[in-house]
Design a protein around this nucleic acid. Structure first.
Length: 824
DNA sequence: GAGCTCTTCTTACC
DNA sequence: ACTGGTAAGAAGAGCTC
């Protein structure tokens, strides 16, 4: 039988001691299909140089006899082959060792103690990755599959009887299809509401399910007039209905928001309590949880996506939201709000408004469903580009995305994959002192006009490509005709590193990323749509992560020497460009890592563009300096401590009057809204008018309002994130004390939560009172502390802005002096 | 307990 | 533990006198 097929979920199983892949996907006619397939399972023994053919034969014979007894199976070597391969860019002879069971690769590799064997590799790749590489059955790509239908077959212990797909097929032939068909997955979103947040401790009150033609709230608490609410006898019945609906709907994707850490484990726990099998899997298996630092829930045959995890690693950098709560993210990306309903209060009251509660529960799934659809192009493109299954990609960190991209592209270079560092190696790497980073030019404080901002295109990546920097191209010592890093400090010594001029495979891959980043950015500009945007973003992300990957202790292709060299080049080129701008008659104001802001001075915009052209004709390799934009005005301020310019803080206004604020309190979520909004307003007034007059009036107004207690409390709330368990804090800052207080009051306190408080006046005779002693929960009654908000929020936020105009705001606020230098 | 420096902590930038 | 380094700035900890 031949079918059209798109792989979605990958899994594997053991049968008679061998490993088989089980791939669930869809046909062109939208049937759900499960493929059973096998692939060669092997790893590599890389030989030392100059081993005779005779010796190699002997070694192969020895290896051929290796057997390993594990718990319930015996694993053995099937055969061996000798190949010419590359390892870290160098040609090697390597023995390809075929084995019966993937799980025993490590155990067999451990038996290869022969002194002629230099290294053993690829026994640590996971089976799914190997399978995709071996059979070239890439996720979310259309194929023509030929195979034998398994129907009531005795094969694989009658596996087809236990798998609930329309078809189970044992694969014969795989061929990539050249039809460019679209694929829209069936997405089902879910969300639960409970009466006790600790996993499994309370009961599940209701579950909402939202798909394309499905909107349900399942509950056992109360009947409802709403058509989408279905009421059951008890929690157990509700859970069974939940399972039934999922099985009926047959989603490709089951999606939740924080569902890895909450909804799915809770459902599992409650199902156990009620003696129900949560058999959501396509083979009736229950969700499996793996424990990393984060709990991860996998359902066989259905991709379980915890959208929060994808948003956190991949998408959060494009968001303005201050938290990644469903509420905020949905508002930003969809323009839709959650239902205005306090679930926690509702539960605590014991007598909630159930109709509102149902509506709220449904809305959460509606939003999760919409968000998943909205981010589908991003998920899809990422999967296509790194060639790992959706389940993994949706949870992967930046380093593993980069690494997957590398691993799936090694074949072009005939490369054997480097091993993953083991525990001890990770420890050693982490102990190393970090390498010196980028250069930041200290700005001259002031308000400047006619500014141009230049920046390098993907600077770190372009340096790695241009100077062939990678683990594999690093030379042990200086060689004729090699790339040489600038002098740098490494392990407390002055050093230079050298890199071969023979193109390495990693720099070549990075060039591919760099080129595509540029190409897809152009494509997006020409034709802005979700697909081109997603593609552009994936390469932007990969490009921005490769340097960090190289310096990451968990990386297979880790090279601290490489990372140090890249950064030395980054410093060198930024400083050089700053010098060049001076020579060309610009006045550099500020620069950070890959950028420099200059005053045009006597130069015109045309001169600026010519300057770029000239620079680019001289920059090495693929390095490129770009014009970020021209700005009408820009403001830099002094540090609060020390009378010189503050780095990483500036505000610019472009020619379309669009304001860009970096680093200022305005963009920091741990300042109260009043301070942030006041500062924002002042920056806006100064940048648009070019002087401080209106801004000063504005600030005086605000000060007056504070003094007259006219400011509503919500403007004064300070939010600080709790980053670790309360007991681990050495320093009890206000937010830690408030968190403690909340815990004592029985309020939910979780790591990662934003703790909210305000500073109130305290009746005391003590002269010195700590801030934390005055901190109160927003629900606690109290009078806000006028002095605190003036001196610790408003003043620090605006003081150094006015200092640029020689105005001493402190004196004005305190009313000691109405006139200052600026008034003359 | 005032005044100081150092450390801890959070959140930004690139 | 899950990309890296640089930086600002608040508030507490801990010291001296």
């Amino acid at each position: 039988m031949q079918i059209n097929f798109i792989p979605i979920d990958y899994d594997y199983f053991d049968f008679q001691g061998r490993t088989y892949a089980k791939i669930v996907g869809r046909t062109g006619k939208d049937k759900q299909v499960c493929l059973i397939d096998s692939c060669d399972i092997y790893f590599w023994a890389i030989l030392k140089p100059k081993i005779t053919d005779k010796k190699i034969k002997q070694i192969q014979e020895k290896i051929n006899k290796i057997k390993v007894k594990q718990a319930s199976r015996e694993s053995r070597v099937l055969k061996t082959e000798l190949h010419n391969k590359n390892f870290l860019g160098k040609p090697v002879k390597a023995i390809k060792i075929f084995i019966t069971n993937h799980k025993d690769a490590h155990a067999i590799a451990d038996k290869l103690g022969m002194k002629e064997i230099d290294k053993r590799r690829e026994y640590d790749l996971n089976f799914i990755t190997k399978y995709i590489l071996e059979r070239k059955l890439k996720p979310l790509t259309w194929y023509n599959i030929e195979g034998e239908v398994l129907a009531n077959s005795q094969k694989f212990n009658g596996i087809d009887n236990s798998i609930n797909t329309d078809l189970v097929l044992e694969v014969d032939k795989i061929q990539e299809s050249n039809t460019k068909k679209d694929f829209s997955p069936k997405i089902l979103a879910y969300d639960i509401e409970v009466d006790e947040l600790e996993i499994g401790k309370g009961e599940i009150l209701m579950i909402s399910l939202v798909g394309e033609n499905l909107k349900k709230v399942l509950t056992w608490k109360k009947s409802s007039k709403k058509s989408y609410v279905e009421t059951f006898e008890d929690e157990a019945e509700m859970l069974e209905a939940f399972i039934k609906y999922i099985k009926q709907y047959k989603p490709d994707i089951l999606t939740g928001y924080f569902s890895d850490g909450f909804d799915l484990p809770y459902l599992k726990a409650r199902a156990e309590k009620n003696h129900i099998k949560l058999n959501l899997g396509i083979d009736n298996s229950q969700p499996r949880f793996s424990r990393g630092k984060l709990l991860t829930g996998k359902i066989s045959g259905i991709i379980h996506i915890d959208l929060l995890r994808f948003i956190r690693t991949v998408y959060s950098q494009y968001l303005k939201s201050e938290t990644l709560s469903l509420d905020e993210v949905a508002l930003e990306l969809l323009g839709e709000k959650k239902e205005d309903f306090n679930a926690y209060e509702a539960i605590k009251s014991g007598n909630p408004n159930w109709e509102d509660f149902f509506k709220y529960n449904l809305q959460d799934s509606v939003l999760t469903h919409k968000l998943t659809e909205k981010l589908w192009p991003d998920l899809f493109e990422m999967v296509k580009i790194v060639e790992e299954p959706l389940f993994n990609v949706s949870r992967a960190g930046l380093s593993s995305l980069v690494e997957s991209f590398i691993l799936h592209n090694l074949e072009k270079y005939n490369e054997i994959a480097e091993k993953r560092p083991i525990h001890e190696e990770i420890g050693n790497r982490r102990k190393k002192r970090s390498v010196e980073g980028a250069f930041v030019l200290r700005p001259e404080p002031g308000l400047f006009e006619n500014i141009a901002m230049f920046d390098f295109t993907s600077m770190h990546t372009s340096i790695m490509v241009s100077f062939n920097i990678s683990k594999a191209t690093l030379l042990e010592k200086k060689q004729k005709n090699s790339y040489e890093s600038p002098e740098l400090e490494f392990e407390n010594k002055k050093k230079k590193f050298y890199f071969s001029k023979k193109q390495g495979f990693i720099p070549l891959l990075l060039k591919e990323i760099f080129d595509k980043r540029k190409r897809f950015k152009q494509e997006y500009k020409k034709d802005p749509n979700p697909i081109t945007k997603a593609r552009s973003n994936v390469f932007k992300l990969l490009s921005a992560s490769v340097h960090g990957y190289q310096g990451f202790f968990g990386a297979r292709y880790y090279s601290l020497e490489g990372a140090a060299s890249v950064l030395a080049f980054v410093r060198k080129f930024n400083k050089e460009i700053i010098e060049q701008t001076k020579k060309a008659g610009f006045k550099p104001i500020y620069g950070d890592t890959d950028s420099v802001a200059v005053q045009l001075g006597k130069n015109t915009k045309k001169n600026a563009k010519e300057f770029l052209k000239k620079i680019n004709s001289k920059l090495p390799g693929i390095m490129e300096l770009d014009l970020e934009d021209f700005f009408k005005r820009g403001l830099w301020v002094t540090k609060r401590t020390g009378g010189f310019g503050a780095k990483k803080k500036y505000a610019l206004i472009d020619e379309k009057n669009k304001i860009k604020i970096r680093g200022f309190e305005t963009v920091r979520r741990d300042w109260c809204n009043l301070a942030r909004q006041t500062q924002n307003q002042i920056l806006k007034l100064i940048l648009t008018t070019g002087n401080e007059k209106k801004a000063l009036e504005y600030v005086k107004q605000i000060v007056k309002q504070i003094k007259n207690r006219k400011i509503p409390l919500h403007q004064l709330i300070i939010k600080t994130q709790l980053k670790k368990p309360i007991s681990e804090y050495k320093s009890i800052n206000p937010h830690v004390l408030i968190a403690k207080k909340m815990q004592e009051q029985g309020l939910p306190v979780n790591i990662g939560m934003l703790i909210e408080y305000y500073i109130a006046e305290l009746e005391t005779t003590k002269k010195r009172v700590l801030v934390r002693e005055r901190a109160k929960l927003p629900t606690e009654p109290g009078k806000y502390d006028i002095k605190y908000y003036l001196n610790n929020q408003i003043l620090p936020a605006v003081e150094n802005i006015f200092q640029v105009f020689n105005i001493n705001l402190k004196e004005i606020i305190e009313g000691k002096k109405q006139m200052s230098l600026g008034d003359f």
